[in-house]
């Protein structure tokens, strides 16, 4: 159990007693050092899972453990030491008047020493490549930069787990790319656990594992390569595979693929091999 960072055990949740269940008997676990993507259509329950993970909500049935601690109203402050969260709207999560103050906020709340604080601010801004913006006003940054500062603010408190709750949904393509690069950097440079919540299958390519939600239930737990094969059934639950996967899936009766390509480059590599043998 020591290696399981997050455990959901038969978790059910609804927002009010006369409302339908948002999550129905959901069980899964996330291992240390894993990046897990939680995927689903609007209203599938994926964001509710995020809110349950750091005690913004509590389950009506079942139990949740984060880093060995059960999430309850009594433990919520311990949990939030370990779980950092980045939300969808970049404009709703700033408190500081400069980038530096904003990243400092979480540290000040925890009474971290000034020396350590300065150090952590620098380190975390470096991780998201925003050191040049120390004294900029957050609201004047681009969407992608804002989200990177938000990620830095979370990194500074050194959580074990970072949840990105549709953190790219309101960004333009350039901002999205920035965030995906940042997340990939974090994967390589830190040991932090990542949970990313999205409905965009282009954003799960780098994840170790995917949990697909549908109408409050786990529909499938798999890896990105496997998921990309399931074009038809994904469409039935309101999701869509990337262009690369669509092309691949239609070429399968002609081309022998070693494995399902995740990127255009992988697809082209395999097509090149096939073509050169003809």
């Amino acid at each position: 159990m020591a290696t399981d960072q997050v455990i959901f055990k038969n978790v059910s949740f609804r927002y009010a007693e006369d409302q339908p269940w948002v999550l129905k008997n959901v069980s899964f676990s996330i291992k240390q050092d894993e990046w897990v993507a939680i995927l689903g259509h609007n209203g599938s329950g994926k964001s509710t899972i995020a809110k349950l993970m750091n005690g913004l909500l509590f389950p009506d049935e079942g139990t949740i453990y984060v880093h060995g601690i059960e999430v309850t109203p009594d433990t919520v402050w311990d949990i939030r030491e370990k779980v950092g969260m980045v939300f969808q709207n970049p404009d709703n999560q700033f408190v500081g008047t400069t980038v530096r103050d904003d990243v400092a906020f979480g540290l000040e709340n925890r009474g971290v020493d000034r020396e350590i604080m300065l150090n952590r601010i620098e380190e975390s801004l470096k991780s998201v490549r925003m050191t040049d913006y120390l004294f900029h006003e957050p609201h004047r940054l681009s969407g992608g930069q804002k989200q990177r500062v938000a990620i830095a603010g979370v990194l500074a408190i050194q959580p074990d787990l970072i949840i990105l709750d549709e953190a790219t949904a309101m960004l333009d393509p350039r901002g999205r790319k920035e965030i995906m690069m940042t997340v990939n950097d974090l994967r390589e440079e830190t040991k932090v656990n990542l949970v990313s919540i999205t409905h965009d299958l282009n954003e799960i390519v780098g994840a170790d594992r995917v949990i697909v939600m549908n109408d409050g239930e786990i529909w499938l737990e798999t890896v990105p390569r496997e998921l990309f094969k399931q074009e038809e059934s994904l469409r039935e639950i309101g999701l869509d595979v990337p262009f690369t996967a669509k092309v691949t899936n239609r070429l399968k009766d002609t081309v022998d693929f070693d494995q399902q390509p995740l990127t255009q480059k992988e697809l082209l590599d395999q097509l090149w091999i096939f073509h050169s043998k003809q």
Partner: peptide, 21 residues
């Protein structure tokens, strides 16, 4: 202006340069 070619067009370009299709 930091915009990308649409996915499908990029794919067609690469098909041409790499596979001659």
């Amino acid at each position: 202006v930091q915009l990308d070619v649409p996915e499908e067009i990029q794919f067609l370009m690469d098909l041409k340069t790499r596979l001659g299709i």
